[in-house]
Write a protein that binds this DNA or RNA. Structure first.
Lengths: 394, 394
DNA sequence: TAAATCTTTATAATTTTTTTAAAAAGATTT
DNA sequence: AAATCTTTTTAAAAAAATTATAAAGATTTA
């Protein structure tokens, strides 16, 4: 069944469109891929024969003949491994083509700075895959999201996760897992998730803020993720904005990060508690099963006054940074996502106040601030789509 | 000679490519327009018959058969009117298709805030066109660059140049001139000029700083100008960065503009002179034929210590702003352009110092700061290309 | 210096794809 | 319930892109 390179491309494009939109009619696929209907019809029929695609039934009436709709076959035994790493915890999921969870989230406590982190990671992934009973040739690939300066084409993370043997990270993992591996920066992935599956869907110019250990940023420009000339665009957390003279982990002073990182918020909370402030956090922090940052976020959700006050201070600083971004990028919307977005509506007032204070009204009024609905799922969903984007399906 | 809409599009695309690149072979046109060689060959032959294109001779050898090259016919009697406005002066040029100056630069002293500015402008343009003897049907259109918030699709400038009758600016001008009119923001045009004709040519991610009465910014992202979701992207001069508490014209405090505008530099110079500083500017300022800003720049070029010191202070602040932009955008290069770029190399040390101080080295080292070679021509060239971009050539 | 080889451009033939037209299916209106 | 209107689906025609071939010119080699 030899198909031309161009035909291969179209097959993959159709599968990608269905992966992102779930169900589509032939006309919709034609519009999205910018290919003619006869060509789409023929290619979809071929994919149905191969069981990649199944018929879903008729679309709701729009006045005329109802369209047949199609979706990816959840029973096609092709799977995607999605991994999302942060500084201390790594999560892993296996999805099918219909984006259904085939193996629920598994956690691994893994310090990303650990010398053996790469070895432990590959071991963990292999072990979990084996436990599912899925064979390697049924797996399209492994997508891994991680903090740090990631070169996605070379497959290198310049900040951490360097294999002991000096090879590049992706090659090492691909060899260890015997699977195609794709890596990307966590904030970039979260932005992709919001763009393809979240509240930023179908928008053209969006900024996605990843509130977490640091404050990451993914920029959607003209409908696609902007990475900059050498892949380092969106280094939001190290712009010079802080009034404090605290030293940042990057070696400079005045970085936004020193006021807005979740770790700083936790540190501020502990300091206040030590100075005698009353808060439910003093109880919560005793449970060492969960990270203090999560306890802090829980306290915020429960409207604990101290936690809310500390969060508001950080949010105001984030808002000040966003004011600069709004002037530069003039986005349609800004999405608050990442672990810190669990604080939800508690974040908004301080951010909006800062934007009103530091933005030219004419510009600010064009941008809406919205909360992510994906939160924890964002990075995993995007890790999976990373694999779909790079697969050929043949 | 009825040609399909698609054929029309291709004809225009070929002319645009030749307008930007001057001379191209059929193969090069084919690659740039992403159309097949047979189609390009046929269309170019048609354009030669219509005298839009002429043969230029053979390209230099690259090892095999030498390619025939083509260029736009300078004798084809089609012309473009280019207008560049700033706060106080308006300049106008007429070009032919080969971008040769057919009518040299004419100046008009025009306060952009003047109630009758629009009427005076249209009168001036009409008068100059009449003086050339070129008929209106030989003119493809008029491109006008101007400061302010410009909505290019609606043809409105929200900041100034509002027609007295309440109609929109472009419609008013088009009616008054009986010609197609296209308007754009001055900083956006300067960025387009650097991208298409200047030092940013063929680069994908570039920031172009327009140093002038204000500090404008045009952003080239993925090889094309980025305007943001509502056209306001690049509002560089009003990001909150200044340590002074001077009130900005926008009504806020702390804007970058209050430290970096040419007007502020002149004011600083005058203040220093009044306080007894010695400088050649005290002599230069007596000549009221030229604006003080130009005298100031002349003094800088002549290495006048006071002028250089004042410029360096402003340049450092610009550099601090650029440090933020580099973190966010990770551009391949930053082009210093606009009237203030006449100060040339005098600007660089302070800007580079600020970038080194406020940027993460890994990111900063990927960006080079370059000086514009177009300076005064930039805006006029881009105003003309605005017309070319919107013409159909039939 | 001339023949042979190698590159690259230019033209022709084939295949692919798109566009246009026609038919079929289904909803809405009279 | 028939007629009209929409929209999808299939078929035929037109356009464009590939591929193959030929021509032109430069470079190498004898």
């Amino acid at each position: 069944m030899t198909v031309s390179a161009k035909g291969q491309q179209l097959r993959a494009d159709i599968i990608k469109q269905l992966y992102y939109r779930k169900t589509l009619s032939l006309t919709e696929i034609s519009k999205r891929t910018k290919k003619s209907l006869p060509l789409i019809t023929a290619t979809v029929n071929m994919l149905i024969k191969e069981q990649y695609i199944i018929e879903q039934g008729l679309a709701p009436s729009t006045g005329g003949r109802r369209a047949q709709t199609f979706l990816l076959n959840p029973k096609k035994e092709k799977y995607v491994v999605a991994v999302a790493m942060d500084q201390l915890t790594t999560r892993m999921v296996v999805y099918n083509l219909a984006q259904e969870v085939v193996m629920p989230v598994k956690n691994l406590d893994l310090d990303i700075q650990d010398q053996d982190a790469v070895a432990k990671l590959s071991q963990f992934i292999n072990q979990q895959i084996r436990a599912t009973g899925i064979t390697k040739n049924q797996i399209l690939g492994v997508g891994i999201g991680m903090p740090g300066f990631v070169n996605i084409t070379e497959g290198i993370n310049y900040s951490c996760l360097k294999p002991a043997d000096g090879t590049n990270l992706r090659q090492y993992m691909a060899l260890a897992l015997d699977l195609p591996v794709h890596i990307d920066n966590d904030s970039s992935l979260i932005a992709l998730a919001e763009l393809n599956f979240g509240v930023a869907r179908d928008q053209k110019d969006v900024l996605v803020v990843n509130i977490g250990w640091g404050t990451g940023l993914g920029m959607v420009v003209n409908g696609s993720l902007y990475r900059g000339s050498s892949g380092y665009a969106g280094e939001f957390s190290h712009i010079p904005l802080s009034k404090t003279s605290n030293l940042c982990s990057c070696g400079k002073v005045g970085c936004l990060e020193v006021d807005t990182s979740l770790l700083v918020m936790v540190a501020n909370a502990e300091k206040a508690l030590a100075e005698g402030s009353v808060s439910i956090m003093s109880e919560l922090f005793k449970d060492e099963q969960k990270h203090k940052a999560d306890h802090f976020l829980d306290a915020v959700v429960k409207r604990d006054p101290l936690a809310v006050a500390i969060l508001s201070d950080a949010a105001f600083q984030i808002g000040k940074g966003l004011a600069t971004l709004i002037h530069i990028m003039n986005p349609e919307s800004i999405v608050l996502s990442g672990r810190g977005a669990k604080a939800g509506k508690m974040l908004l007032p301080a951010i909006e106040q800062a934007i009103n204070e530091f933005c030219i009204p004419r510009i600010a009024e064009k941008t809406t601030i919205v909360l992510s609905k994906l939160i924890d799922d964002a990075e995993l969903m995007a890790s999976a789509s990373l694999v779909i984007e790079h697969s050929f399906f043949n």
